[in-house]
Write a protein that binds this DNA or RNA. Structure first.
Lengths: 331, 331
DNA sequence: GCGGCTAGTGTAAACGATTACATTTTTTTG
DNA sequence: CAAAAAAATGTAATCGTTTACACTAGCCGC
């Protein structure tokens, strides 16, 4: 493995000069630069990033901490972050917390030890609470979930508005007995619940029920079955993320109910399957590409200038109305 | 940020001793060890992995290079790899090639520069061809796709057998005019095609058509529409991966055809949606957790002992028969 | 009582880059 | 043309570890 010394020797210069050429400094004669670049090519030299990192006390790596990579939302986000990062010559360390605060702590430590330049992070609710006490020398950007300790950069969806819009859509299409399934792992579920309530209130309705449960397919499934076993059955189910939507959909099928005639179903996040099932699912699509890209850009800006005042970017979701919430037939 | 020097000073020993304690060497007096550990705790010292990595010329990072993180198969794999790696104290650098050989090369270089300890890699077909010439000092394990240059560790599905089983299933259920959609980016599609052909041959049938196309939803969609425009329409469609399955399914819906009465559909990989659509999709499920875990273990073994003879692990898929290929009604 | 062991510890040289500072070479200028 | 300024390059310290080697102290056997 050639090192900078080998290059220096071949080019007949000092390592300092090689370093300068590679860093793109302009304080180097054109002819020297050529000699160095030739030597680099000849040896097929590539600088050792570990050494560079140690000496310069920074690295071209960022960490991405998500709560479940199998959630299509986070898959899409990580894809976007990775693309944006690589465009800037950064690589991405991906961490999966499974909504487990202990794993969150573990991974943040690891990322710290790895000297990442920054972290993009979707924290659990438990962690958010401690975030104010968690003072970090590493720049970070929060995505998807609001945290109170507002001295952090954030990229969020306007969840209250989205929840409102989705609920209003249901009501306007004639549904009145609404049940809500909300993820309990983050503020996202709570905010979407706020919008849900607000819409019901504005239309002078009451929610049939509101369930805060772990954001898992299985939980969505079980809870939905349970709803159907109640005497007063909902005519529409609002789910606050795609895993719950999938679980609810499955439960509806297993009970051989018709969507939307027996029960309507709406949720969040565009997935492969949302448009494939029959009927296709009405949902609020999040601009995942934009969220990931914005978060990455915000992070780079903060790395650049650590003391800049924190900013929060709030993006709008887009209602995609489909068959699962079609206007209610008169009964 | 405390360094090993600070710890040494507080404990009243040399940095060498601190290092020995941390490395778990036994050549350290019990009392000294206690003093050092106390100092570590007091300072909340965490060793700098970059420095360690530079000095010891190894790192606790591995690279995972997949062709499309949005493919649920790779999502599941990366999840499994990450879990297995972290159990050993390793972190994972995730790279996305999009089936693009240029990006493959880029990322392999980056991983090399980052001094990863090893790489888990699903190469494109183009790259596989060059793999024999690509001699790397970094241990790596190939997953999902066979490469000819057999001096590499591999973890593969028995794709020929899986293709055979899935095809035989269709035939036994009464379908005779089979069309096959195969991904053209890797050997996977080709191997599954082999099984497809073999089964047809064994049952003395001829394929209606075989299409090798990019493994994208859009391609699956367009190709399927095209099939329906041919005079001789298939009564069953075999797809070699879940993105093609999704595309085909969409095309079938758009043409308002009934599954399986008008046309049956089978594919690969368990996805969230496979069981949700109506009818649910018959498929070969891959043991993703096992593939990821095995690959990671193989990689650690090779890191441990670089000269060991390469081994190939071949795992079996599991046929999950569902409605989309139900026995054909007599016509 | 002395050479040889062993256990425990310290000293200092790596690892491969960057960079402050020093030095040399070239150009400008009065 | 000499002095000053600017440009180009080199020297060597440094980042935070690990580790080969050296060293000390205590103990053993003869």
């Amino acid at each position: 493995m050639p090192s900078i010394k080998d290059v220096a020797q071949i080019a007949g210069v000092s390592t300092a000069t090689v370093s300068r050429v590679l860093a793109g400094s302009d304080r180097v004669k054109e002819e020297t630069r050529r000699r160095v670049l030739n030597a680099v090519k000849e040896l097929n030299y590539r600088p050792n990033l570990v050494a560079r990192s140690l000496r310069s006390q920074k690295s071209a790596r960022i960490g991405l901490v998500v709560s479940d990579i199998r959630n299509p939302f986070f898959t899409a986000i990580s894809r976007a972050v990775e693309d944006a990062a690589y465009e800037q010559g950064y690589s991405v360390l991906l961490c999966n917390t499974d909504e487990d605060p202990a794993r969150e702590e573990l991974y943040l430590n690891i990322l710290h030890d790895e000297s990442v330049a920054g972290i993009i992070f979707s924290p659990t609710q438990q962690f958010s609470a401690r975030l104010s006490t968690f003072k970090s020398d590493i720049p970070f950007v929060i995505i998807d979930r609001a945290v109170n300790a507002a001295q952090a950069d954030m990229v969020l969806l306007d969840n209250v508005a989205a929840g409102y819009e989705l609920t209003a859509h249901l009501i306007q299409n004639g549904y009145t007995k609404l049940a809500g399934l909300f993820g309990n792992a983050s503020t996202t579920g709570r905010d979407r619940n706020k919008g849900f309530r607000k819409a019901l209130e504005d239309f002078q309705l009451k929610p049939l029920t509101e369930q805060f449960i772990p954001p898992r397919i299985q939980q969505g499934y079980e809870t939905t079955l349970m709803l159907f076993d109640q005497p007063n059955r909902p005519d529409a189910i609002f789910t606050s993320n795609s895993l719950l939507t999938a679980g609810a959909f499955q439960a509806i099928r297993d009970r051989r109910l018709k969507v939307p005639d027996d029960v309507a179903l709406v949720g969040f996040d565009e997935t492969t399957w949302g448009a494939l099932v029959d009927p296709p699912i009405t949902l609020i699509a999040q601009p995942t590409e934009e969220i990931g890209r914005t978060a990455t850009e915000l992070l780079f800006q903060r790395i650049e200038e650590p003391s800049r005042s924190p900013r929060t970017v709030i993006l709008k979701g887009k209602l995609i109305a489909r068959g699962s919430s079609a206007p209610r037939a008169n009964k």
